[in-house]
Amino acid sequence: MKHKIKTSLLALSLIASSVVAADARFKDVQITANKLSDSAYMFVGSGGNIGVSAGSDGILIIDNQFAPLADKITKSLNQIQSGTPKYVINTHYHGDHTGGNAHFGEQAIIFAHDNVLTRLSANKDLSKSALPVVTYSTDISIHFNNDTLVIQHLGPGHTDGDSVVFWQDDNIVHMGDLFFKDRFPYVDLKGGGSVIGYRDNVAKILTLIDNDTQIIPGHGALANKDDLRKFKHMLDHSINWMKKNIQEGQSLADIQAKGINDKWKSWSWNFISEEKWIDTLYQGLKK
């Protein structure tokens, strides 16, 4: 009995320590709002950028960063408009975009691609409120705040459940993690992602927007079509470069030693370094 008590106390202590660590990690994070139109905003904090529609129909948010930031996100939303979100859209399943699901899902309806529900449901630690309620296989539209938000799934790219959200009238698009502005992207190969699919999805989006479109990237500052075009050029060069090295019989170690073209080295960052990007390209293209 004493052993069981000690074990339980140790478990509680570890849980408490992890909560304190999470709070400490995010205590200085500030959620800042960038107004894009009369009813649309981009929120920046820690994790994926958040899209917001706020108006006469209520509040809708696209992604919600990490769980410990839910209260800060709510406070920032209330500075724009009182009330809680009616709808949440998940652009994919990663925790830096869906961490607030459990909090916001208590009162909001969560929309996501079918595969997001499948992947989140596999995490037995998540509450029911964290799971999408409405799922889709391709496209779905939400008519909200005098605009139509069109949610599209273009096939495997960053993951196998990516969604891109277009404001039809306001000419805004939230790309989720199909766009890392001026950075090497994360292609989650274990999560159904595809290097070629990622590039092709970016190419598709370029055909659907114009020079006035405001682009909310998954990570990075507000962008435009030129920024996205530059991103695709990096993807094209990286893919063609890696294919050539693989065809020549180069090993991953050899390719890592050479490194990528100097033009793109500055796109390396703390999460996806040049080394990790090269490894992703190799693993994703060698088959």
Rank of each mutant, 00 (worst) to 15 (best):
H92Y: 11
I73P: 07
A112V: 07
K124C: 00
L77W: 05
S129V: 06
Q107S: 15
G95A: 05
N78V: 06
L117H: 03
T84M: 15
L77R: 00
L131G: 06
K124T: 13
H103Q: 01
Y87H: 10
H94I: 10
D71L: 13
K72S: 11
G99R: 00
G83A: 08
S127Q: 12
T91H: 02
A130D: 06
G105K: 00
Q107Y: 12
D114T: 09
A130C: 13
V88Q: 04
G105W: 06
K86N: 14
K72V: 09
L126K: 08
R119N: 04
H97Q: 13
Y93P: 12
K86V: 06
L131D: 06
T91I: 05
I89P: 12
I110E: 10
V88S: 03
H92E: 15
Y87M: 03
H113C: 09
Q107C: 05
Y93L: 11
A130Y: 05
Y87A: 04
I73K: 01
N78S: 11
H94D: 08
K72P: 09
A70T: 10
G95H: 08
I110F: 11
T98M: 10
F104Q: 11
Q107P: 00
A112C: 09
H103K: 08
F111S: 02
N101H: 02
A130K: 03
H103F: 15
G105N: 06
S82K: 13
L117K: 10
A130E: 06
K72Y: 12
H103N: 04
I73Y: 04
D114H: 05
T74P: 07
L126T: 09
K72C: 08
D125Y: 14
Q81F: 11
T84E: 15
Q107A: 12
F104M: 10
N78H: 13
L77C: 05
H113N: 14
T98N: 09
H97L: 15
L117C: 02
N90L: 08
I80V: 14
L126Y: 14
N78I: 00
H92K: 00
Q107L: 13
T91Y: 01
G95Y: 08
N101K: 00
K86L: 15
L126Q: 08
G100M: 09
G99P: 09
T98Y: 12
K128V: 11
I80R: 06
A70M: 01
I73C: 02
T84N: 11
T91W: 01
S121Q: 15
N101V: 02
R119H: 09
L131T: 03
Q107V: 13
G83I: 08
N90P: 07
G83R: 02
N101P: 04
L77H: 04
H103A: 06
T84V: 12
H94Q: 08
F111W: 07
K128A: 15
N78K: 10
I80L: 12
K75D: 14
S127G: 12
G99A: 10
N101I: 01
S82C: 01
Q107R: 07
G100A: 13
Q79P: 02
N78A: 10
V116F: 07
L77Q: 03
A102K: 01
I110N: 08
K124R: 07
N90V: 01
Q107H: 14
T84F: 14
R119G: 00
D125R: 07
D114W: 00
T84D: 15
T84K: 12
T98W: 13
E106F: 01
A112D: 09
E106C: 04
Q107T: 15
I109L: 08
N78E: 14
L77V: 04
A130G: 10
N90E: 12
K124H: 02
G105S: 10
L117M: 01
A70H: 14
